[in-house]
Design a binder for these strands. Structure first.
Length: 106
DNA sequence: CTTCTGACA
DNA sequence: TGTCAGGA
């Protein structure tokens, strides 16, 4: 089930674990370890194969970057959680504030 | 491709 | 603790 280098499967639009691994620059075993730690949650095929989307690849890149900076998996979990949480808060807040600004200064 | 297990810095 | 290697 090997996919061509760097190219996502056209039918599924996602990467196999092997291409995701050397795309990020690590082994497949580590990616499973990251999933076990809850750092990434790739979808699964009917056969049980992991399907890494482009968003998952970006997430994996952030993980390795944070890993190089000396954080452990627990720390990275907090960072990514806070990052998602803050993103939600920011988007809702900017929507409200723009709505507020329009009413304050028409 | 999957899971599990053991070993190393 | 995270990473890597081998085998089912």
């Amino acid at each position: 089930m090997t996919t061509p280098d760097g190219a996502p499967d056209p039918t599924t639009g996602v990467y196999a674990i092997s291409v995701a691994a050397d795309l990020v620059g690590t082994g497949v075993q580590n990616l499973r370890a990251y999933e076990k730690a809850g750092l990434v949650t790739p979808q699964r095929t009917a056969g049980g194969n992991r399907l890494y989307s482009q968003a998952d690849i970006d997430r994996l890149r952030q993980i390795t970057a944070l890993l190089d900076q000396g954080l452990n998996l627990a720390g990275i979990t907090m960072v990514l959680d806070l990052r998602d949480e803050n993103h939600q808060l920011r988007t809702t807040r900017t929507e409200q504030s723009t709505r507020q600004r329009r009413t304050d200064h028409p």
